[in-house]
């Protein structure tokens, strides 16, 4: 028991150390590194965690997260640059719009499961991309340039420290918020729907409503990532939400591990490091990234975080000679091919 407590405290301590090191990045690293690797990892991790949440807790693998990311980012950019809105108000409007679109997408897609859900969300991603690529209000292919983040956050290129800390705080809050949700009646029921929708209907749950609301709940997270991306890069265009980016977000979430929320940021960091440094070493960047992806997926279906989890459990059992504590949430059950809601 005391050993358990010590191990728990040890894990918490390790997490605290990691968080402190991450928080000190602007002090310890170059401006280039903080801006290029730090900011990108954080907003990419934030959009990826909206997918990790949907997939890990709701059994919904969505390709539409970049669409919601784009809705919020482009609306916020448009309102602050063209209409002269205060950046905070523009951000809020963008995130609210993304949430509304998320509700709409969720309501339509929640009737489908597995591959059909994936295809429907792919269609949403493409429709959104082509809409923004065509409409002049949002700069069409040119996008919107010269997005100015709130003055208090400083210049993201010259002095990214404050922007970095702000993104870090938003990320930690998103993580804690989603983790809290996963432990409430709503969140546990969402995991129940992931495991067996027929059983959940028999227990009195409205499966489709639960899926829709789960999807809606993830939308402001993806939306916030969109706004923060526009602020960090001082621009956003339809190209920021192309199919390639939608797949990148999926890849990021899978590299980190779909079973744990923190995996999203781990995957984002790995991708951003590869993107920043591997490109300089090789012309075949995409090939090498593909190899990294394959190795991680083959070695550990739970991603990098799953690998770390197995290592920790192994260490625990070596130290204690007992069974490792169960990791939560567990691997989702394979999708059950049934209609939702019980009665047809």
């Amino acid at each position: 028991m005391t050993m358990d407590r010590m191990l728990t405290l040890g894990t918490r301590g390790a997490l605290a150390v990691v968080l402190v090191v991450v928080a000190l990045m602007p002090v310890l690293c170059t401006t280039f590194f903080t801006s290029q690797v730090g900011l990108t990892s954080l907003w990419l991790g934030l959009v990826a965690v909206s997918l990790t949440f949907l997939s890990g807790y709701g059994g919904m693998v969505s390709l539409a997260q970049t669409a919601l990311f784009g809705v919020a980012g482009l609306i916020a950019a448009r309102l602050s640059v063209e209409s002269g809105w205060d950046p905070w108000a523009a951000a809020l409007a963008g995130i609210l719009a993304a949430t509304a679109v998320g509700l709409l997408f969720g309501a339509v897609a929640s009737g489908s499961q597995g591959i059909y859900f994936l295809i429907i969300t792919l269609a949403f991603a493409q429709v959104t991309y082509f809409y923004f690529a065509a409409v002049p209000t949002f700069g069409a292919h040119e996008g919107i340039n010269g997005v100015r983040p709130p003055a208090v956050l400083g210049d993201p290129v010259q002095d990214p420290a404050r922007m970095y800390w702000f993104l870090l705080v938003v990320s930690v809050l998103a993580f804690l918020g989603l983790r809290h949700v996963s432990r409430t009646a709503f969140g546990l029921a969402l995991q129940g729907v992931r495991d067996d929708p027929v059983r959940m209907a028999a227990l009195g749950y409205n499966v489709r409503l639960h899926r829709t609301l789960g999807f809606t709940l993830a939308a402001p997270v993806a939306g916030a990532a969109g706004v923060l991306s526009a602020w960090s890069n001082t621009r956003m265009s339809a190209g920021s939400i192309s199919l390639a980016i939608a797949i990148l977000v999926l890849t990021t979430a899978v590299i980190g591990g779909l079973n744990r929320l923190e995996g999203a940021w781990v995957g984002a960091l790995i991708y951003t490091l590869c993107d920043t440094y591997l490109r300089g070493w090789t012309d075949r960047f995409t090939t090498w990234l593909g190899v990294v992806f394959l190795v991680i997926v083959l070695v550990s279906p739970g991603g990098v975080v799953g690998l770390l989890g197995s290592a920790t459990s192994w260490l625990h059992s070596r130290l204690r000679g007992g069974a490792p504590p169960p990791a939560a949430p567990s691997t989702p059950a394979p999708p059950v091919p049934v209609s939702s809601g019980g009665a047809r």
Binding site: L188, Q191, G192, R194, D195, D196, V198, R199, M200, A202, P326, P329, S330, T331, P332, A333
Partner: peptide, 8 residues
């Protein structure tokens, strides 16, 4: 059995 296999 139709249980919520991923939950306790």
């Amino acid at each position: 059995s139709r249980l919520l296999t991923g939950l306790t």
